[in-house]
């Protein structure tokens, strides 16, 4: 059965690794639903967060294939229960939408969104949350006209206690001198 999985991948910062990772998905014709990369808690080590909907045996294969690539330190897959995750969305709406009544203001309050910038022509609203939440605000704002919309990829941290540093130590221990 297919399910949504969040992959967390730790890499060295090497040009080309993103390509090496994505070809593992594309050669199987799998769609990457979201991808985010940034430096992790360890300087020089990067964290990739990838969301994909596949079977569990496929996600196991993917993780092993990814971890096998040179420059990849460790790869994991998680279900939604195992992670705390977040996305951010930005909405550009015409300023006049705010002028008529207080409906937009109410929406922004109820969604816990905030206003980043006010210009005579437009206002930029920011909302963080899960995809359903940012999507709900999108739907609610639609009637006022959305000039632009963008949503980030998912970022996620795991609930498990074992941190990547512990895995990296294990990796060091695993190998014999050749």
């Amino acid at each position: 059965m297919k399910k949504e999985y969040t992959l967390t991948i730790f890499t060295e910062n090497k040009i080309g690794l993103l390509h090496r990772i994505t070809v593992i998905f594309t050669r199987r014709k799998l769609n990457i639903e979201s991808l985010n990369t940034s430096e992790s808690e360890i300087r020089g080590i990067y964290r990739f967060t990838i969301v994909v909907t596949v079977t569990e045996s496929m996600v196991q294969t993917l993780v092993k294939q990814i971890e096998k690539q040179i420059g990849i330190l460790k790869a994991f897959y998680h279900t939604l229960e195992e992670i705390v995750y977040q996305e951010i969305a930005l909405y550009k709406v015409p300023t006049h939408a705010f002028a008529d009544g207080n409906e937009v203001e109410k929406l922004i309050r109820n969604h816990n969104a905030r206003i980043l910038r006010i210009e005579p022509e437009y206002i930029i609203v920011e909302k963080t949350g899960h995809k359903e939440e940012t999507q709900q605000l999108f739907r609610d704002l639609e009637q006022f006209g959305i000039l632009q919309f963008a949503r980030s990829g998912r970022i996620a941290l795991t609930k498990q206690i074992k941190e990547i540093t512990a895995y990296l130590k294990e990796l060091e221990m695993q190998q014999d001198e050749t």
Binding site: L171, Q175, T178
Partner: peptide
């Protein structure tokens, strides 16, 4: 080179 820390050449 006979060892790279991020790469397990000979798993035990």
């Amino acid at each position: 080179i006979s060892r790279v820390s991020s790469y397990v050449a000979k798993p035990r």
